[in-house]
Design a protein around this nucleic acid. Structure first.
Lengths: 147, 147
DNA sequence: CACTAAATCATAATCATTACTATTTAGTTT
DNA sequence: AAACTAAATAGTAATGATTATGATTTAGTG
């Protein structure tokens, strides 16, 4: 399901965020890349060609705000932060296949690994990585709060 | 299985890398953190207290060399690069549980997700992420080489 | 139209990482 | 054991992503 710019804007509105022309253009850009991770620095560069003199701060801050709204998925890779617009607002459990050539992201539905291959016809799988996050037994026993 | 400093040194030797006192100390440090990811910048800081005036370059370059030897596992997170000594030289397929409080890493053996929980008694699971890498169908069809 | 909190701009700082070149050193050879 | 040489390191500075700060502007409201 593709998300539209209007949906994104209404989510800002629903959260009492002002619809500035900068935010509007930023969303417009992000929405067109729903199936690719984009480096924040590339977004930054693009926005500053659209709005000469736009502040780095504005771009980075808005991206962070969009992330807390659940509009964006963020991941770190290779000294850069990558973002991808996500329409899955219910944070439904799923994983990604990421093309190491063009960066295209294909969403996967099931969880056990073997089943994934069937969802990727024609693709070449070269590797995968999974990490589970939480508190280890020692930290859990200490009563540390999960964040 | 814990790896020893001697094993690490012999791997350098086997690859015709010189055993400098800097590399020796670096390995010594990394080997003591086999079950934690450590930020390279923290390694850098530590090494420079051991060797006043040690070059950033030296630390970063050696860590990269150790990675290509398969001695280290590297991942990006939050504008930092994290490393972990790994004894698994055959690159045996496995995943990690990472404590979000202390950073401790617990190696997991099986793959389907549900089975993992049984391997983490006493732990609090707050989330997980998996990504499969490769070439998408379009890039595969184009004949792009996997890297 | 005025108001005000929120957002942005402009500038500079910070932090991780990398580049570059002169100097040093590990491991080998004589 | 001294000499040799490629490899490694030191020292210095640059780069690039991201964040901080304080003054100015603006979206949304009354």
């Amino acid at each position: 399901m593709e998300a539209t710019l209007e949906q994104a804007v209404s989510i800002l509105r629903r959260n009492q965020l002002k619809i500035t022309k900068q935010r509007h253009a930023l969303l417009d850009y992000l929405v067109t890349y729903q199936d690719h991770y984009v480096a924040i620095s590339a977004v930054d560069e693009h926005m500053r060609t659209l709005f000469a003199g736009m502040s780095h701060n504005t771009i980075y801050r808005n991206i962070k705000e969009f992330e807390t709204l659940g509009l964006l998925e963020v991941k770190s890779a290779d000294n850069q932060t990558l973002v991808k617009y996500q329409c899955d607002f219910e944070h439904q459990h799923h994983h990604h296949f990421v093309c190491s050539n063009c960066g295209r992201v294909i969403e996967l539905q099931a969880c056990p690994l073997d089943a994934y291959e069937a969802q990727l016809p024609g693709c070449t799988i070269t590797g995968h990585r999974m990490e589970i996050y939480g508190l280890c037994d020692q930290c859990t026993a200490k009563g540390v709060q999960a964040n």
